[in-house]
Design a protein around this nucleic acid. Structure first.
Lengths: 207, 207
DNA sequence: TAGATTGTTAATCGATTAACAATC
DNA sequence: TAGATTGTTAATCGATTAACAATC
């Protein structure tokens, strides 16, 4: 076990390890060596062993890592060994799609609140939720002690809505708006901008 | 100018610089120093200057970088100074949302083909496109010489559909399915898995 | 010119990898 | 036991940053 500060990039890889272990478990694998896992992820076995060693000793010399046990450990490390309730702000096309997406619940993220500012949507049922008026945002977030928000509003509203999420007590924001949010440093943000992702690939395409 | 191989991580930052320059241009800024840009991005000015120096000399000592010129240069570097045609595979909720998203066209990515395998959707008009039967995928991709695909199918179909995109000549895939695709090394892949992004944040939340 | 900022070098910092003793 | 694989150290590799001469 290594007690130094854990590099952010190591944390970023853990969900990816977990996803692959999930797949392997479904394929019936019960033990996996760092070598086999590394081949699947196309990285070096040393990196996997080093990454895991920041958190403990999860393997057995001679055989490898018990798949289910390692998954459990990763879930504990990532703080996803319980249900997180999530609020969605912005119920346009993308908000609709995310509310209907079962992957969140399947992985322990339960969407429990949905907000919009448009009269046509407020009060409507979308998937399992009734869309609420954005004016109630902070109140409702506080009342349910929501710590995670998903932001699916147009770019021009995103910064203000992000700030409102934060003042409602939210500590982590999954941002689908194509802007860079400016928030206090203790607020976690992950941005999902498909245009930026496309632009990261075109560089490598033949001109 | 620096002629060594350019680190991938530098390429990854360029779309982000471009997005911020866009914002600044809209705010009326015509010249920006590495210091001002760095404050906006919350990185060091040295990193910006070093990153840009891989590609040329775009600034003026004493003043900084002309915003529009730098944007032009970045667009050329990223290979986005022309329209890219894009195909979408999978017209479920997310596919619908993306077809209706104007951000792609606004940034030079034109969705020109949409495919699904479900009779209820095939032949239907969604946004500006008529959804085609997936059986025609490779033919249509070849016919239109499409190089970029967006994958919005369920996880269990994603690997096969990715392979079909590749055999249709696609070289870059924006993958929304929550699996790791295994494709030839010359194929560009960017994955957008909201669950993984959430899991990268929960680590930092109070338990 | 004086002040400001670039482009670039060299130093620093941090992450990845190879190698191997420990051990299942 | 013999073979295999971990956890960890140390070496390597690569990226970031500070500093400054060049120059607008």
């Amino acid at each position: 076990m290594n007690n130094r500060n854990i590099p952010k990039i190591v944390i970023d890889r853990l969900p990816w390890y977990l996803q692959t272990l999930n797949q392997m478990a479904r394929e019936g694998l019960s033990i996996v060596s760092s070598l086999v896992l590394a081949e699947r992820l196309d990285i070096t076995p040393a990196q996997i062993r080093k990454d895991l060693s920041y958190f403990g000793e999860f393997g057995k010399q001679g055989s490898g890592y018990p798949v289910f046990h390692l998954m459990d450990e990763l879930q504990t490390i990532l703080n996803i060994n319980h249900i997180w309730q999530v609020a969605i702000v912005g119920v346009g096309g993308l908000g609709h799609a995310l509310l209907n997406y079962h992957g969140f619940a399947r992985h322990g993220f339960e969407t429990v609140l949905a907000f919009d500012n448009h009269p046509n949507v407020i009060g409507k049922q979308v998937a399992h939720l009734v869309v609420q008026d954005i004016t109630h945002l902070e109140d409702q977030l506080r009342k349910k002690a929501i710590k995670i928000g998903i932001l699916t509003v147009p770019a021009r509203q995103a910064q203000i809505m992000a700030e409102r999420l934060v003042s409602g007590g939210v500590l982590a924001i999954l941002n689908y708006a194509p802007i860079t949010l400016h928030l206090p440093p203790d607020i976690q943000v992950q941005s999902m901008d498909p245009v930026q992702s496309l632009q990261r690939m075109t560089y490598f395409l033949p001109r």
